[in-house]
Simulated assay, not measured.
Amino acid sequence: MESHERYAHQILTEIEAGERHSQRTLASGAGIALGLTNLLMRRFVRRGWVRVVRIRPNRVRYFLTPSGLAEKARMSRLFLQDSVKFYANARERVGASLAALSASWPEGATEKRIVFWGSGEVAEIAYVCLQETDLQLVGVAGDRVGRFFGLPIQPCSELGAHGLGAVPFDKLIVTSFDNQPAIAAQLEELGVPAERIAWL
């Protein structure tokens, strides 16, 4: 799904919710410029997806038409297909990285203890892939408080050269695709040696 279709989907979803929206609130909700929202709304009306009802001289209300509902459903299917495709690609990429990491361990190693840096969606995909390897997740370092598949999420400040708090580990796996230079700088500041860090 292209970016303009994502914006269109967001706006149609907002209109379908039935709340009274101005083009300004629709633009703000979609995170796009008011001019682009105006252009999209005119296109929606021209295609028959949205009906405009004037409730006061300077106030209108937007309603989704049956063809607008059908178009929104089509866009939702595309969005879901893209999400599934992203998950499949991410799982393949992460699975290959974890398999390569496991294979690179010194021969005869009895334990392959790892820690995840991060507890978001990529970490969840990594956890699923981890089940197909002989790597053992012993800890998770992250910014949020809570649990990650039964393990407590430790503050990043608890991370050191050889352990997460009192838990020793062999490798730290960065389970994020975002802002790797900033993460690398933070790990260096915490004293984690570069050779103990694996990137997905």
Rank of each mutant, 00 (worst) to 15 (best):
T175M: 15
F169R: 00
A161H: 07
D178Y: 12
D170S: 04
L164V: 09
P155V: 12
Q180A: 10
P155Y: 15
V167M: 10
E158I: 03
S176K: 02
A166F: 14
V167L: 11
Q180D: 02
I183V: 09
G163Y: 03
L164P: 08
E158F: 11
T175R: 02
H162A: 09
T175K: 02
S157Y: 08
N179L: 13
F169D: 00
I183C: 03
L164G: 03
D170Q: 14
V174Q: 00
P181N: 09
E188G: 14
L187D: 02
C156M: 07
H162D: 14
D170T: 11
V174G: 01
D170H: 15
K171W: 14
C156G: 03
S157E: 15
P155L: 12
F177N: 13
T175N: 02
F169L: 02
F169T: 02
Q154A: 11
L159C: 05
F169N: 00
D178Q: 11
L159Q: 00
L159W: 06
G163V: 03
A161C: 11
A161I: 14
G160C: 09
Q154P: 06
S176R: 09
L159K: 00
V174D: 00
H162E: 15
G163I: 05
L164F: 10
G160E: 15
H162T: 13
A185T: 05
C156P: 00
K171F: 15
K171L: 11
F177P: 03
K171E: 08
P155K: 03
I173M: 06
G163T: 11
G165E: 05
E158W: 07
D178F: 07
L159D: 00
P181V: 07
A185Q: 13
A185Y: 06
N179E: 06
P168Y: 07
Q186C: 05
F169P: 01
G165T: 06
C156T: 07
F177C: 13
Q154G: 00
L172C: 09
I173S: 00
E158D: 12
A166R: 13
L187I: 07
D170M: 06
G165P: 09
E158N: 04
V174M: 09
Q186T: 10
I173P: 00
P155I: 10
A182G: 08
P181I: 05
D170V: 04
Q186E: 04
G160D: 14
A166V: 08
